[in-house]
Measured scan of single mutants.
Amino acid sequence: MEQGTVKWFNAEKGFGFIERENGDDVFVHFSAIQGDGFKSLDEGQAVTFDVEEGQRGPQAANVQKA
């Protein structure tokens, strides 16, 4: 798993971006967030995640709040 920081996340649209430790950004969809209840992330929040190849390039999977 990688570690990163939430760059931004739009809860209304259900997606955002995580900044990886290497400085690259990776797309995150709310469906990739682990846990119960409303799935959202806060700007600046530390997270761990896997990276999978999506239809439009790399995207975060198995996102967990650190």
Rank of each mutant, 00 (worst) to 15 (best):
48 T>C: 08
21 E>A: 14
50 D>A: 11
13 K>W: 09
21 E>R: 14
36 D>N: 12
7 K>C: 07
8 W>Q: 03
2 E>C: 10
66 A>N: 11
21 E>F: 12
1 M>Y: 11
41 L>W: 04
10 N>C: 09
55 Q>F: 14
53 E>M: 15
48 T>N: 08
18 I>S: 00
14 G>Y: 02
14 G>H: 03
65 K>E: 07
43 E>G: 14
62 N>V: 04
56 R>C: 09
63 V>E: 00
54 G>W: 06
53 E>L: 13
27 F>W: 06
21 E>G: 11
24 D>F: 13
31 S>Y: 05
37 G>P: 06
18 I>G: 00
29 H>N: 03
47 V>I: 06
56 R>E: 06
2 E>Q: 13
41 L>V: 05
6 V>S: 02
2 E>L: 14
23 G>P: 02
28 V>L: 08
10 N>Y: 07
38 F>H: 09
11 A>G: 09
36 D>Q: 13
58 P>C: 07
13 K>N: 05
57 G>L: 04
51 V>K: 04
30 F>M: 06
5 T>I: 13
40 S>E: 07
53 E>K: 11
5 T>P: 02
50 D>C: 10
16 G>H: 00
30 F>C: 05
47 V>R: 00
49 F>D: 00
32 A>H: 06
13 K>E: 04
43 E>N: 14
1 M>D: 08
65 K>S: 09
26 V>W: 02
1 M>S: 14
31 S>M: 07
21 E>M: 13
64 Q>D: 06
57 G>Q: 04
52 E>T: 13
27 F>G: 01
6 V>G: 01
3 Q>L: 12
31 S>H: 08
59 Q>M: 10
43 E>W: 12
27 F>M: 03
66 A>L: 15
22 N>P: 08
25 D>S: 10
12 E>V: 14
34 Q>R: 10
36 D>Y: 13
30 F>D: 02
61 A>M: 13
37 G>N: 07
31 S>D: 04
34 Q>Y: 09
3 Q>Y: 14
50 D>P: 00
49 F>W: 02
25 D>A: 09
35 G>I: 09
66 A>H: 13
4 G>E: 01
36 D>C: 11
16 G>N: 00
42 D>F: 14
28 V>H: 01
1 M>W: 09
25 D>K: 09
53 E>H: 12
55 Q>W: 15
58 P>E: 06
33 I>E: 02
47 V>M: 02
62 N>M: 07
3 Q>S: 13
35 G>T: 10
46 A>F: 12
6 V>C: 07
10 N>Q: 06
50 D>K: 12
66 A>M: 14
44 G>I: 02
45 Q>S: 08
51 V>N: 03
25 D>L: 14
36 D>K: 13
58 P>H: 08
64 Q>R: 13
51 V>A: 04
13 K>L: 10
36 D>S: 14
33 I>L: 07
54 G>C: 06
38 F>Q: 08
13 K>I: 08
38 F>R: 09
9 F>D: 00
64 Q>Y: 11
24 D>R: 15
42 D>Y: 14
40 S>I: 10
43 E>L: 13
61 A>I: 13
14 G>I: 02
27 F>P: 03
47 V>G: 00
30 F>I: 06
63 V>S: 01
5 T>Y: 14
12 E>C: 13
33 I>Y: 03
1 M>E: 09
27 F>Y: 07
30 F>H: 08
32 A>N: 08
21 E>T: 14
47 V>A: 02
54 G>S: 11
29 H>Q: 03
20 R>F: 05
46 A>H: 15
2 E>M: 14
14 G>D: 01
56 R>V: 07
24 D>Q: 14
6 V>P: 00
34 Q>I: 13
39 K>W: 07
12 E>Q: 15
64 Q>I: 11
22 N>W: 10
23 G>F: 08
63 V>C: 04
43 E>V: 15
28 V>F: 14
49 F>R: 00
18 I>W: 01
1 M>L: 12
12 E>T: 15
37 G>M: 06
3 Q>M: 12
11 A>Q: 12
43 E>S: 14
1 M>N: 12
18 I>K: 00
15 F>S: 03
6 V>M: 04
50 D>N: 14
20 R>G: 05
60 A>T: 03
42 D>E: 13
52 E>M: 13
8 W>C: 06
61 A>K: 13
44 G>S: 05
10 N>H: 09
15 F>P: 00
7 K>P: 00
43 E>R: 15
28 V>M: 07
49 F>K: 00
45 Q>H: 07
14 G>R: 04
64 Q>M: 12
16 G>A: 02
23 G>R: 10
34 Q>F: 09
11 A>K: 15
42 D>Q: 14
24 D>E: 12
44 G>V: 03
34 Q>C: 06
47 V>L: 04
